[in-house]
Nucleic acid binder design. Structure first.
Length: 111
DNA sequence: AGATGGAGTCGTCAATGGAC
DNA sequence: GTCCATTGACGACTCCATCT
């Protein structure tokens, strides 16, 4: 559980961190990182480098969303499990009480 | 007041499985 | 075989509590 409730909009969400800016991007095609020099071609058609960069950005964006959704679902799942545990614990308590009462009744009968 | 550690969140990468 | 969605793992970062 978070100490405070302010999960969203705090921290570094939404802006580039030093880590993001400097992290080596292994999945980038060779030469796509700097955007200088390589990949220039005739005008008109989209440069392959630009295309690759755009593709990468799209992929990152989609994966970012997917990760968010994945975490949301996981949290929901855990919440459900915790709920279920609480319910079952209650049931268990009730059954134990019931058993105790029945045993009492039986004991009085045989005595 | 500053250092430190723990807990939580986020973005990214990489592996994987399913659909086509 | 390729594409895409999902998810575990990792590092970066923030916030808060506690210690010195």
């Amino acid at each position: 559980m978070a100490v405070t409730g302010d999960e969203t909009e705090t921290g570094h969400a939404g802006e580039l961190t030093a880590y993001q800016l400097h992290k080596p991007s292994s999945s980038l095609p060779p030469g796509a990182g700097t955007g200088t020099g390589t990949g220039t071609n005739a005008r008109g058609s989209k440069k392959p480098v630009e295309d690759a960069v755009q593709k990468r950005e799209l992929r990152l964006m989609k994966n970012r969303e997917a990760a968010r959704e994945c975490r949301r679902k996981k949290k929901e799942y855990v919440r459900c499990l915790e709920n279920r545990v609480a319910v079952l614990e209650n049931q268990n308590k009730t059954l134990i009480e019931e058993l105790r009462a029945l045993k009492d009744i039986y004991r009085h009968k045989v005595e």
